[in-house]
Design a binder for these strands. Structure first.
Lengths: 135, 135
DNA sequence: CTTTACACTTGCAAAATGCAAGTAAAGTTA
DNA sequence: TAACTTTACTTGCATTTTGCAAGTGTAAAG
């Protein structure tokens, strides 16, 4: 199930081998925003990922140590997904994607407001967010 | 041919709709490094993209104004591809991907050396590179 | 005028994606 | 405690995308 086929040793290529598809970074995005998500939370995201694709992506991200599963405190029927440090470290990538998109697309107001904060002090924002996600 | 199916208005989602696949950012990478590439140059890149996939990606990137074609000065048989400003502006994304990958993979020495330069003065590096690519 | 270089296109098999329905365990309600 | 619901997936199948190999057309070179 876990075929890690490395196309080259270029860092960009290696990265894309793991999360270079239309869905993986959306999962990471959800977790950067929400810190912890259940399977159902991902399904409810606006883009409408199919449940089998979601399952496949979650497994791949877990195998690549981007995310990890943990028990839900309220119920054995629920599962929580969370970013590992490796996943959290995608935050700068995510921020730059947002800034790029802001320049070339029209994006929601609340996201614009957040990016305004980011631009005020990027390093500070990243540091604070990582701290929040890690505990 | 140019179906721009937007899944949501999230900036991340919009971005991935355009270049969220295993190949597009490698094309952008080649152009960020080389400034201008021919069709054959892309084919020669280490990852070994199939020629039909390359043609499809180049067309999609062109339709989305990430790259543009221009006449080769030496020959009518050759075509040059170059980044538009929109494509050049993916540089910060590309840099963060490289920095992330450097932390979690072993990457080639020459790329490490380049990233050392980047880390010394990220804003300066970006500014200088953009200037170089734009003229 | 024949050969080579270059930028693609085409055909087809294999893999990934997307949709709808189904399953199993856990929790909730009557 | 029996029936129902919620949750996290799995399964089957049609559609789409990818990958490989071979082919085409135009321009340049010999």
């Amino acid at each position: 199930m876990s075929k890690v086929k490395k196309r080259s040793d270029c860092p960009v290529s290696c990265s894309l081998d793991i999360w270079g598809d239309k869905w993986s970074l959306l999962i990471v995005r959800d977790l950067l925003f929400a810190k912890e998500c259940t399977y159902g939370d991902f399904l409810k995201s606006g883009e409408g990922i199919a449940t089998n694709i979601l399952a496949a992506r979650l497994l791949a991200l877990e195998e690549n140590k981007i995310i990890e599963k943990l028990a839900h405190p309220d119920s054995k029927a629920k599962v929580l997904y969370r970013l590992t440090r490796k996943g959290i470290d995608l935050l700068p990538v995510m921020i730059e994607i947002n800034l790029w998109a802001e320049k070339y697309f029209s994006i929601p107001e609340d996201r614009k407001a957040l990016l305004k904060e980011v631009k005020k002090d990027k390093a500070g924002f990243i540091k604070a967010t990582i701290k929040e996600l890690e505990r």
